[in-house]
Amino acid sequence: MSEPILSARDVVIKFSLRGQTLTAVRGASLDLYEGESVAIVGESGSGKSVFTKSWIGMLDANGWVDSGSILFEGKDLAKFKTEEEWLTIRGKKIAMVFQDPMTALNPLRTIGSQIQETLELHQGLRGQEAKRRTIEILAQVGISEPEMRYRQYPHEFSGGMRQRVVIAIAIACNPRILICDEPTTSLDVTIQAQILELIRKLQKELKVTLVYITHDLGVVANVADRVAVMYAGEIIEYGTVEEIFYDPRHPYTWALLSSLPQLGIKGQPLYSIRGTPPNLFNEIRGDPFAPRNPQALKIDFVKSPPFFQVSPTHYAKTWLLDPRAPKVEPPEIVKAMRAKYERYAV
């Protein structure tokens, strides 16, 4: 493969909260390649949002990148301190779309002015030219009657339409990387599909590198080429979509897949993972998933596993892949998936 355009290495992000320090991201690494589409999957609190927010310097005021590096265009973003430095990246090179479109737009300014603002800021467009370009972008994100919509206010738009506007703002200056942080979570299911399709379409048209953050494995297959699974501030498994869906190796990925309603076996109760992710205020020893994993090994409580290579594109961070480990069968649902895949593949 070619050189990555962004390379995050062993990123540790901490927050100071209630007088204590919380480690939200505990040494996550990820490479992004030009034009690809990567999904980061995890429960809420797994650190997936925080991890990507650190790439554009949007951590909350009480958070900081403690160690690690984020290389982008020859600069280490983890070393950025001042707002001036971030203004060369944020919105211009790396853009972000957030979860809740209902509150993401300034209610007192027209849709047009809020998109135009970005164009004026990064592309130096002015006046009529900026307006013309704004209307083009509105049309590009699938908003009909863009001239009329240009003058309207956010409250005159539905949730799905607003998310289109937010996406319009993000793509307005042709960023190299587009991060979508659960962009469809708060939308109706039918609208979700439309927004997903729009993101996919724009990614192809603009050849932008897409990072799609979600807690919903179900949408991942529609949008991503590669998947990274995050748990308790670590990336615990990554690979191509096929590898993650049909040949997962980490017990947490198994658990995630088993709890997908779409994959459930009729007549059997839907699987659910017991417990909650660990309290990030505490120091975590060994594999953070171990306490919730019925098949955990003793070593999982003692020592953190390294990444084991499954294929050149597929890695998983679990002791089960160690040659000394006993053989553990994946759950029925995962095996059924693999069988189905192999039938079609062969």
Binding site: I56, I89, G91, I169
Partner: peptide
């Protein structure tokens, strides 16, 4: 939230 978007825009 809209302040966060404005920041993400690069303002």
């Amino acid at each position: 939230d809209y302040i966060r978007l404005a920041r993400a825009k690069g303002m």
